[in-house]
Nucleic acid binder design. Structure first.
Length: 382
DNA sequence: ATGTCC
């Protein structure tokens, strides 16, 4: 087990296998976060990669101080998995593509939006128009089919029927979280906030609102897509991977920040690969405090965004990239984004998931294959 | 990442 959890210092470790792509720059960023005031322990997940200052795919456990910049701008970003009633065997990609339509703009059904906002405890505010939209970057909505079953009982316990399509939504709090972080940084810079002060309490209140908003947003994205494709569905799981919460780690009370780190103590989760790779439905096998009760949140970037187009445009066209090696379709009519989110730009999901398996942290429940990935209908790029 | 930068 120790083989897959590598100690970087007395308070930093990273979960990885020999096959896991890992950049020195990401490890250096992780080690530098371990030096922050009040930091007790940091843990890199196998999808760890460099971020803007702080690494992505990591958890940070501090005492008495919280750091909004460690959570980042997309407070509440996470994954929601929905079960649909569409038979995977009946899918016709052209038809599904057509029916999915365009969900880039604000949700048309204001009644649905207001109802969801109320149910999820989202306060009326200026960001309501973003509810039901995916956003940019690595966010997506993806129809998937169950490709391999490793634990049939666990699937049925979750209410999953393997013959039907699943819908995975990766999105967050959109402009709301962005505004919360920006206002914090404008006032306090990158300093942390002392827990117990009014400013810390104010941030935590706003952060809580962003978590509710993000969850509501994922739900509306899913419901919107289901309406468009004339399907019914139910939410199976919804788990944030960018947030901070009080926690007891190794017998010590403190604050656990997650930046692209999925909690291991909130039931089964999906660890998605790139749009051209599998995703895995997994469940935690043990509560590991050394790795800060966290799991990978995806494959993790291998290439920085700015390098992707140069490396790929000679090899492949946007049209070619609308189809993946697994036979799935990609809706991404944004010339830049389609390169930035190319499967080649991401670590192989098996090298990430196998590191977690090797460390004894997870058990695989099912392998999911992409069918259709929605990024943006955008403008036509051909 | 961003009702995003020219």
């Amino acid at each position: 087990m120790g083989n897959f959890v590598k100690a970087l210092s007395d308070r930093a470790c990273v979960v990885m296998a020999d096959s896991t792509w890992m950049e020195d720059a990401a490890l250096a960023q992780l080690l530098s976060t371990a030096q922050m005031e009040g930091m007790q322990r940091v843990a890199g997940m196998p999808d760890l990669h460099p971020g803007r200052g702080n690494p992505v795919g990591a958890a940070f456990f501090s005492k008495d101080i919280i750091y909004p910049t460690l959570v980042g701008n997309d407070i509440g970003c996470g994954m929601a998995l929905w079960q649909t009633d569409l038979l995977a065997s009946a899918v016709r990609l052209d038809k599904l593509d057509k029916r999915v339509g365009n969900i880039d703009g604000p949700l048309e059904d204001l009644q649905l939006r207001a109802q969801a906002a109320e149910v999820q405890g989202v306060q009326p505010g200026e960001h309501l128009s973003a509810l039901g939209t995916i956003g940019g970057g690595n966010h997506f909505a993806e129809f998937q089919q169950v490709d391999a079953i490793y634990a049939a009982q666990a699937l049925s316990d979750l209410g999953l029927s393997p013959r039907h399509l699943l819908l995975l939504v990766h999105s967050g709090s959109r402009g709301l979280g962005e505004r919360i972080l920006r206002r914090h940084v404008d006032t306090f810079g990158h300093r942390g906030l002392t827990v117990g002060t009014d400013v810390a309490a104010a941030y935590l209140d706003e952060h809580e609102a962003a978590l509710r908003f993000a969850r509501c947003n994922r739900s509306l994205v899913a419901q919107r897509l289901l309406l468009n494709v004339r399907a019914q569905g139910e939410c199976v799981l919804d788990v944030h991977h960018n947030f901070v919460a009080s926690a007891n780690v190794g017998g010590q009370d403190g604050w656990l920040h997650r930046k692209g780190a999925t909690p291991s103590d909130q039931g089964p989760v999906v660890i998605p690969g790139s749009r051209g790779d599998y995703s895995y439905l997994v469940r935690s096998r043990r509560l590991c405090h050394d790795t800060l009760l966290s799991l990978a949140h995806g494959a993790g970037r291998k290439w920085i965004r700015s390098a992707c187009k140069d490396r790929l445009f000679k090899l492949t066209s946007p049209t070619q990239m609308a189809r993946t090696a697994l036979g799935s379709r990609v809706i991404c009519n944004d010339r830049q984004l389609i390169y930035e989110e190319a499967p080649q730009a991401y670590k192989g999901i098996d090298s990430v998931v196998q590191a977690l398996v090797g460390a004894g942290l997870i058990e695989l429940l099912a392998r999911l294959k992409p069918v259709l990935t929605y990024k943006t209908r955008g403008e036509c790029c051909e």
